[in-house]
Simulated assay, not measured.
Amino acid sequence: MIDFVTLRRNMVNGQIRTNGVSDPAVIAALSELPRELFVPEPRRALAYLDDDIAVGGDGEPRFLLEPMILALIVQAAGLKPSDRVLDIGCTTGYSTAVLARLAGSVVGLESDGALAETARDALQRVGVANAAVVNGPLTAGWPQDGPYDAIFFEGAVEQVPPSLLGQLSDEGRLVAVINNSGAGRVTLFRSVGGTVSSLALFNAAVPLLPGFAKPKGFVF
């Protein structure tokens, strides 16, 4: 039998604490949540590896982000217990569960119906009561429950649509891995008084989310 408790502790001590994650709330969330319950059963032995894990997807491969990268991205947003959060591309719900430990409420948005149902089941199994998983196109966000104090992406994007930035509250933050020409850069966007600024933070190799490619320009 696999000792997931020991694997989880080793993940936190060997991958999280040693790579710049210092927020006690983030560390506690990753220490307590059983990541294996969010991984397809045939791959559960891989749940605590320092790598992205394929979790399925209808025509487009989808992944749980590497734990260290997820922790750094979440830490970058500086979440507060009162925050309302949108988690775009939540796949099986692990990132939503992590965010729910830190924020007041979370909406996990997933375009794949099967993954959305898996996420709902997993969140219920681990007792997350302040998060809901909804099914819809990722690029549209979920404006009906906004505005949001923070927005996250479970994958890299070439661009952030203005419509998603428009779903931020005043002083809201959006954290995204912007991938241009194969190089990913975690970028923090902040909306203040209707003006959005951005700050590149650190490099990250993260699988692309479908639907967020830049429009192709004309070639002469």
Rank of each mutant, 00 (worst) to 15 (best):
V85D: 06
L64E: 05
V126C: 05
T91I: 02
K80M: 14
V134T: 13
R125F: 00
L123T: 11
P67F: 08
L102W: 08
G93W: 02
T96I: 05
S95Q: 11
L115H: 05
A129I: 00
V74F: 01
G127F: 00
V74K: 04
A132L: 03
L64C: 04
R101T: 13
R120C: 00
R125W: 00
P81A: 12
C90L: 08
V98R: 11
S95E: 07
A131N: 09
L86N: 09
L70Q: 12
I69C: 03
R101V: 13
S95C: 11
A103Q: 02
G89E: 07
L64F: 01
R125T: 14
L86F: 05
A103W: 02
D121F: 00
G127A: 05
L102H: 08
L102A: 12
A76I: 09
A119M: 12
M68F: 00
V74C: 03
A71K: 04
I73Q: 11
V134S: 08
E117I: 13
G108P: 03
L102S: 10
A76G: 11
G93C: 08
C90E: 02
L79C: 14
A119N: 08
V85P: 04
T118S: 08
A129L: 13
G104V: 10
Q124V: 13
L99S: 07
A114K: 09
V85W: 02
G104S: 12
A122D: 01
G89Q: 10
L70D: 02
A132F: 00
G113M: 14
T92A: 07
S95W: 01
L109A: 07
L72I: 08
A122E: 02
A122P: 00
Q75P: 10
A122K: 05
T92C: 07
A76H: 13
A129G: 10
E66L: 10
V128M: 04
S95Y: 01
G89T: 12
L70R: 02
L86W: 01
Y94H: 10
